[in-house]
Design a protein around this nucleic acid. Structure first.
Length: 877
RNA sequence: GGGUUCUUAGCUCAGUUGGCUAGAGUGUCUGCUUGACGUGCAGAAGGUCAUAGGUUCGAAUCCUAUAGGACCCA
C-alpha cells in the first residue's frame, strides 16, 4: 500500500471538486452498467420515473438516496446490481404545460393538427425531460444510464398497446356512457384517484319548489344552485312522515318550468337539510344512481368546459358555472322562492392536475374492470410475496383493492398512448388491435381511430416489466427486487403494477416495497411548491455537499414516519463527512513519515486492536441486519456511532500512544493496521456517502485507472474476530478515563495541569495503565491493591476499582462532598428499586431465573460501590 | 363518518419479542490554541415516557378509554 504523497491536505473536506470528478469517473468507466450474467444473481430496482415536467425536490433526494444505498450495497455484496432509470411522459401534466406554452404564442389546440401538437410535446420533452437526471447525478445515483427508458419509447408504447388489446379481448376493458370525474380545465375525464377533496367555506341554499295543484312547497337544500336547471326529480326518504303525503306528486321546477316527480328513495338522509333533496342525475354521482333506480330523465346542462349548454333556458346559456349560480340565486330571489341561506363547509372534489373543481359528468369513456384483476394482486400482498415496509400499508392496500370501482382509463388528450381502437365509418364496427386495420378487407379510409389517449398510469403500470426490452433481459431481471416510492402513489402505481405483474407476467413485479417518509418542514407542514417551504436540493448540495445531504436524510428519516426537515440539519452530514475526512487526514499525514507495510498488519497486536476489530465486525453485522430489515435509518446511526465514537474518539486516540512512542516497527504496524481498518470502514460507509468514500479511498493507495471503492467487496462479518474479553478491557479503560475526566471537570482542574492518580485494584494490566496514562494527562499512575487512601483527594469508584486523585491545595471539600453525595444518591436510587424487586416474593418465584440472577449481581455491585463511597464520604468529614 | 398512524430531554428522534441505572444528535452551561478535526475535544445539567384505568412478579413497550396531532378513504 502506498498512500499518495500529499503536501497539504486541507483541514476541511471540500465536496465540490470530489463530487463532479468522481461522478464523471464512474460514468466514464461505465461502472454501473449491468448485463446478463448467469453466474451472478441479479438485484434489480426500477426507478419511479419522474415526470418530464418534474423538478428535483427534497423528496426525490430521500427516495433516490435510499435506492442508491440498496443498489450500491448489493453491488458490493456481489450481486449483479441493475438500477433502471427512466422518465414518464405524464400525459395530462405535460399537455397542460404545452397548452400553456402555446397560449403564450396565441396558439390553441384546435388551430393545429394532432401531429403538430405532438411535435411541441416532444420538443418539451427534449428540452426539459433530461434536467431531473442531470440533477440526480449530483447526488451520486448509480443508475445504469445505458438502460434509460421513456414511457413513450417505441418498445414501451407497443407494450402498452398490447396490454390494452389483450385486456379488451379478455373482456376486461369496455366502453360505456358513464358518470366520470370531469376536469373542465383540461376538458378530460380523470380517474377517482386523481380527485382530491378540499374543504370549502360555502353556502347552503334553501329553495322552495312548488308542488303542482296543491299550493304547497317542498323546500330543498343545495350547495350547488346552478344544477337546479338540470333537476329531474325531488327525493325524500320513504320513512319520512313529513313528506309521505307528497310522494308521487309532481313538482313544477321553478325558472325552467319542467314537471318533475317527487319520489322516495332510501338514500336520502332525513337529517340533512330539510329532508328533501333535488335530484340532478347528470351532475351528481348519487343522483345518477337514484335516477337509475327510479327511471329519471338525465339532462346534461354543461359543455366540456363547464359552461352551460342549450339544455337550459336561453338567458342562462353559455355561461360559466359560477356565474350561472349567481344568476339562478338572483332569479329565485326575485321569484320569492329562496327560503334561507346558511353558511356551510363542505368538501369539494378538485382535479389534482387542473386544480379546479371537478364536475361529475356523463360521457362516453373506456373503463377497465377491476374486480377480477385485483384478486391475485391482493392475494400476493396478503401472503407476503410482495412485502411492504412498513407493513401497515398492507391494510391500506387491502381497503382500496376491496372497494375499488372500474377504472376510467381514457383521457380526452393528445399527448399519450392513443387508444388502439378503430371505428368503421359506416358499420360502426369496433376494431381493436396493435396495428391499424389496413390489411383487412376495408380500406384504411373507412376507419377512424379513437381520439383519446390512455391515463398515464395505464402505461406506467407496466414499468417494472417492460423497461426490459428483450425477452432474455426480462427473464433475468424480472421480478425486480425492490421498489422505493412515496406512499401517496400506492394506488396510482404500486397496486396497479402488482395487478399488471400478476396478469401479464403471472409473477409479482417486485419482492419488497419501501414506502418513504413524507418530508415536512420544521413547522410540520408538507413541503410544497405553493408554500415555498421546500429548499432547493441543489442549493443544499452546493452549501453542504451531496454526501452530507444524503447522509442527513437517511439519518433523520425513519421507516414509516414523517420527517421534519430543515436546511440546518444537513450540518449533521457535513460534520460527519468532515470528521471522516480528518481521521483520514490524520492517518495520511502520519504515513508521510511512517512506512506502511501490509505484512506488519498482523503484528504487534494488543487489546486495543482486538477491541476495534471486534467492534468493527459487530458493526458489519448490525448494518447487514438493519439493511435486511430495510431499517436504513438504523444502519446510518450504527455507522455514525462506529465511525465517530469507536474509531475516532477512542481507537485513533489510543493508537497515538504507539504511533508517537513505539519503535519504528511498532509504529509501522500500528499505522498499517489503522489504515487498513480505515479503508474497510470507508467501504461500510460507501453506499451512504459514495463521493467522500471514493475520494479518500483513492488517496489511500495508488489505484489503477477504473478501480473504484464502489466495486470493492463489502466487508464481511467474521465471528472469530468478536472478542468480548478485549471489549471488557477497553470498557474498563474508558470508565476509568471518564471518571478522571469527570473529576477534572467538576473540580475545575485545568486539563493542562498534570495530576497523580492512584488506582486501588488487583487487575489492571500494564497495557491498560499505559493507555489510561496517555488518555488523561497523568504525571504518575500508581496501581496497588493495598492502597491507603491519600489525604485530601478526589475519589471515584469504577467496576470495583477505587480511584484517588490527591489534590492538596486544589480540592474544595464542599464540592467533593457534594460530588460523592450525588453519586451515592444516584446509585442508591437504583439499588433500592432492585432491592424492592428482590424482596418481592412473587417476583422471586415467577420471574425467570436469569433475570433474578442478573438483578442479584446488580445489587451486589451497587452495594459494594455504595459502601466504598460511604467510607470515602465519612473520611471527608 | 370509516381506516391507518403518532404523542419519550428545550428541539429532532432511537428504544427489536414486556426485564441491565430510558439512549443519541442538536441546543444550553463549564473548561480547552492537548502534534486529524472549533464542521473539533472533554465534562455537566436536562425526562412523573400525552392523560386515566387495566393485564402482569415487572409496562415507554401489551389492552381499553380520553385528549391532541398527522395522513388516507368516503
Amino acid at each position: 500500500m502506498h498512500p499518495k504523497n500529499l503536501e497539504n491536505i486541507p483541514k476541511a473536506y471540500s465536496p465540490k471538486d470530489a463530487e463532479d470528478k468522481w461522478y464523471k469517473y464512474w460514468e466514464d468507466h461505465n461502472l454501473y452498467h449491468s448485463e446478463i450474467d448467469e453466474n451472478k444473481p441479479a438485484y434489480t430496482i426500477v426507478i419511479p420515473p419522474p415526470n418530464i415536467t418534474g423538478i428535483l425536490h427534497i423528496g426525490h433526494i430521500l427516495n433516490n438516496t435510499l435506492q442508491d444505498i440498496f443498489i450500491r450495497y448489493k453491488r458490493m455484496m456481489g450481486f449483479n446490481a441493475c438500477w433502471v432509470p427512466g422518465i414518464d411522459h405524464a400525459s395530462i401534466a405535460t399537455e397542460a404545460k404545452v397548452v400553456a406554452l402555446l397560449k403564450e404564442q396565441h396558439i390553441t389546440k384546435d388551430k393545429i393538427s394532432r401531429d403538430d401538437f405532438l411535435k411541441h410535446c416532444y420538443a418539451w420533452k427534449d428540452k426539459y425531460g433530461g434536467i431531473i437526471f442531470q440533477q440526480l447525478r449530483k447526488i451520486g445515483v448509480s443508475c445504469d444510464w445505458q438502460r434509460e427508458r421513456f414511457t413513450m419509447d417505441d418498445h414501451y408504447y407497443k407494450k402498452v398497446t398490447e396490454a390494452f388489446v389483450k385486456l379488451y379481448k379478455e373482456g376486461l376493458i369496455y366502453r360505456g356512457y358513464r358518470m366520470v370525474n370531469w376536469d373542465p380545465a383540461s376538458k378530460s375525464a380523470i380517474s377517482d384517484e386523481e380527485v382530491f377533496y378540499k374543504e370549502i367555506q360555502g353556502k347552503l341554499w334553501y329553495f322552495k319548489y312548488p308542488v303542482k295543484n296543491s299550493g304547497e312547497f317542498v323546500i330543498v337544500a343545495t350547495t350547488r344552485p346552478e344544477t337546479m336547471l338540470g333537476d329531474t326529480g325531488v327525493a325524500v326518504n320513504p320513512e319520512d312522515e313529513r313528506f309521505k303525503h307528497l310522494v308521487g306528486k309532481t313538482i313544477t321546477l321553478p325558472i325552467v318550468g319542467r314537471e318533475i316527480p317527487l319520489f322516495a328513495d332510501s338514500y336520502v338522509d332525513k337529517e340533512f337539510g330539510t329532508g328533501a333533496v333535488k335530484v340532478t342525475p347528470a351532475h351528481d354521482v348519487n343522483d345518477y344512481d337514484m335516477a337509475h333506480r327510479n327511471n329519471l330523465e338525465m339532462i346534461n346542462i354543461f359543455n366540456e368546459d363547464a359552461t352551460t349548454n342549450g339544455n337550459v333556458p336561453p338567458e342562462f346559456q353559455e355561461l360559466d358555472r359560477y356565474l350561472v349560480r349567481e344568476k339562478v340565486v338572483a332569479r329565485m330571489e326575485e321569484l320569492g322562492l329562496v327560503e334561507k341561506i346558511e353558511s356551510y363547509t363542505n368538501k369539494v372534489g378538485y382535479s389534482q392536475r387542473g386544480n379546479v373543481p371537478i364536475e361529475p359528468y356523463l360521457s362516453e369513456q373506456w373503463f377497465m374492470k377491476m374486480d377480477e384483476l385485483c384478486k391475485p394482486a391482493l392475494q400476493v400482498v396478503q401472503e407476503g410475496r410482495v412485502k411492504f415496509h412498513p407493513e401497515h400499508w398492507v391494510k391500506t392496500n387491502e381497503h382500496w383493492m376491496t372497494n375499488i370501482r372500474d377504472w376510467c382509463i381514457s383521457r380526452q388528450l393528445w399527448w399519450g398512448h392513443r387508444i388502439p381502437v378503430w371505428y368503421h365509418n359506416n358499420t360502426k364496427e369496433i376494431y381493436c388491435a396493435v396495428t391499424p386495420p389496413v390489411d383487412i378487407d376495408s380500406p384504411e379510409a373507412n376507419w377512424h381511430q379513437d381520439d383519446d389517449v390512455l391515463d398515464t398510469w395505464a402505461s406506467s403500470w407496466l414499468w417494472a416489466q417492460d423497461v426490459f426490452t428483450s425477452e432474455s433481459d426480462q427473464k433475468y431481471y424480472y421480478p425486480t427486487d425492490l421498489l422505493v416510492t412515496a406512499p401517496d402513489i400506492i394506488f396510482f402505481w404500486v397496486a396497479r403494477m402488482i395487478i399488471a405483474g400478476m396478469h401479464f407476467m403471472g409473477e409479482v413485479p417486485f419482492k419488497d416495497v419501501y414506502f418513504t417518509s413524507l418530508v415536512r418542514d420544521e413547522k410540520g407542514r408538507k413541503m410544497s411548491k405553493s408554500l415555498g417551504n421546500s429548499p432547493d436540493p441543489l442549493d443544499l448540495i452546493e452549501e453542504y455537499g451531496a454526501d452530507a445531504l444524503r447522509f442527513t436524510m437517511t439519518y433523520i428519516a425513519p421507516l414509516g414516519q414523517d420527517v421534519m426537515f430543515s436546511s440546518e440539519m444537513v450540518e449533521i452530514g457535513r460534520n460527519f463527512a468532515n470528521k471522516m475526512w480528518n481521521a483520514g487526514r490524520f492517518l495520511l499525514m502520519n504515513a508521510q513519515n511512517i512506512k506502511i507495510d501490509p505484512l506488519l498488519k498482523h503484528k504487534h497486536i494488543d487489546f486495543t486492536d482486538k477491541w476495534i476489530t471486534s467492534r468493527f465486525n459487530k458493526t458489519i453485522r448490525e448494518v447487514n441486519e438493519a439493511l435486511d430489515k430495510f431499517e436504513v435509518n438504523a444502519a446510518s446511526k450504527i455507522i455514525y456511532s462506529y465511525v465517530w465514537n469507536d474509531f475516532c474518539d477512542w481507537y485513533v486516540e489510543l493508537a497515538k500512544n504507539r504511533l508517537y512512542n513505539g519503535s519504528d516497527e511498532v509504529k509501522s504496524a500500528v499505522l498499517s493496521r489503522a489504515i487498513s481498518l480505515y479503508e474497510d470502514m470507508l467501504k461500510l460507509v460507501h453506499p451512504f456517502m459514495p463521493f467522500i468514500s471514493e475520494e479518500i479511498w483513492q488517496l489511500l493507495d495508488e489505484r489503477k485507472e477504473g478501480q473504484s471503492i464502489s466495486i470493492c467487496e463489502f466487508p464481511k462479518f467474521d465471528a472469530s474476530l468478536v472478542d468480548d474479553t478485549a471489549e471488557k478491557e477497553i470498557e474498563f479503560v474508558q470508565e476509568v478515563v471518564t471518571a478522571i475526566r469527570n473529576i477534572r471537570g467538576e473540580m475545575n482542574i485545568s486539563p493542562a495541569k498534570p495530576i497523580n492518580v492512584f488506582l486501588k485494584s488487583t487487575a489492571v494490566t500494564f497495557a491498560q495503565e499505559k493507555y489510561i496514562k496517555s488518555l488523561v494527562r497523568i504525571d504518575t499512575l500508581t496501581v496497588d491493591e493495598h492502597l491507603d487512601k491519600p489525604k485530601a483527594c478526589a475519589s471515584a469508584v469504577v467496576k470495583g476499582c477505587d480511584i484517588f486523585i490527591p489534590l492538596a491545595g486544589l480540592i474544595d471539600l464542599k464540592v467533593e462532598r457534594a460530588r460523592i453525595e450525588k453519586e451515592i444518591a444516584r446509585i442508591l436510587g437504583s439499588f433500592n428499586s432492585v432491592r424492592k424487586k428482590l424482596e418481592n416474593e412473587s417476583f422471586v418465584s415467577k420471574a425467570p431465573a436469569e433475570v433474578i440472577e442478573r438483578e442479584r449481581m446488580k445489587m451486589a455491585d451497587w452495594q459494594k460501590a455504595l459502601e466504598k463511597l460511604q467510607t470515602i464520604l465519612d473520611d471527608l468529614e
